[in-house]
Design a binder for these strands. Structure first.
Lengths: 185, 185
DNA sequence: AAATTTAATGTACATATGTTCAATAAAGTA
DNA sequence: TACTTTATTGAACATATGTACATTAAATTT
């Protein structure tokens, strides 16, 4: 199975286009394989040759999106220590900008019908971003919990942001995060 | 439709028993309606008379579990201000004990195949528990975000706990939470 | 105990799933 | 260009979904 085979590239592109089209009409779990293939003008057998279920197609997208999140952290003005309010500069936090950029995408990720898997992918990604920060020397176990605590706390803000229909700007979210951290609750 | 009709109670009980049995073998989304009805010895039409999908049966369980979580906060030694480390007494936090009590249940809730809906139910429940605490006077918007931040931070610990197979005791988790809050990160 | 209500059953039907396989066509390779 | 590889197709099959409805049986009500 040659990943660069033109036939495969075309097929996958058709499926991707069909999925984005269908996602505007209905939630991911309600999109049927049959429906997706009809929309993409490909045979159902071809679908099953590449994927197991509709969610797998979405996962391919998601990997691109996560790539963007990763890349946004490999730039010159790289952040230093995110979750230390003493050092935190709102501009250093890129996560909210990333979410805003892919807002339509995260509306799907955060909708209740969708498998937790996508949420956990976001969690792991944010967690690993936080792990790159230098933290005070702490026992490994505490650190593991601390990263999970902090990563999910940020997603907590994102959930609230989503529920408020992403009204606030990404910069406002960064200021909000700083304020919450300053509360030291 | 009389909720107390013996026929309904029996049918639902059979379905519940069948689901718990099947859940020991496979993940929730892989349990088919047909399969569940075969196991419960009820007609498939009867199932669709009461539910839309297998997940709805699970939701009925979940409501009982959430009830327990709620009740654990209506007891004499009620907590005061959970997320203020200065006042926090590990014994006052009941969430981890609740999770441990329904460990098998939360293993399902936190497994990747399951819809985000169940996660969000837990989120909303913990969030509303935190909302009962008296916080310093803050603008409503900040408060909304703060509660989402704190509630999800706790679930972050629970995710990590789950991934470590719930090895730590609930008391150890409370101590851990206090330590993290004392770090003021 | 008889009458009434309605949950549960059995059957049917159109559609979807997930898999298999031989035939075809479109790509890559010599 | 001719040859080779393999992705795609189409057809078939067993099983599952979701809905509908007349019949049956088990409840509740009188």
């Amino acid at each position: 199975m040659n990943k660069n085979d033109l036939r495969i590239l075309k097929t996958k592109q058709n499926i991707h286009l069909a999925l984005t089209k269908l996602l505007k009409k209905k939630a991911l779990p309600h999109i049927k394989v049959t429906e997706l293939c009809r929309e993409a003008n490909i045979n159902r057998g071809t679908f099953y040759f590449h994927y197991q279920e509709v969610g797998d197609v979405f996962k391919e997208y998601y990997e691109e999106v996560v790539m963007d999140l990763k890349e946004s952290y490999n730039e010159p003005y790289r952040h230093t220590v995110i979750l230390d309010p003493k050092n935190l500069n709102p501009k250093t936090v890129r996560i909210f900008h990333h979410i805003k950029k892919y807002e339509e995408f995260y509306r799907i990720i955060l909708s209740k019908e969708v498998p937790l898997e996508f949420y956990l992918m976001l969690f792991d990604e944010i967690r690993s971003i936080l792990m790159e920060d230098k933290h005070a020397v702490l026992p490994k176990e505490i650190k593991d919990y601390l990263y999970s605590y902090s990563a999910n706390a940020i997603i907590g803000l994102i959930i609230e942001w989503y529920r408020r229909d992403f009204q606030e700007s990404a910069d406002e979210m960064n200021v909000l995060l700083v304020n919450i951290l300053r509360l030291k609750v």
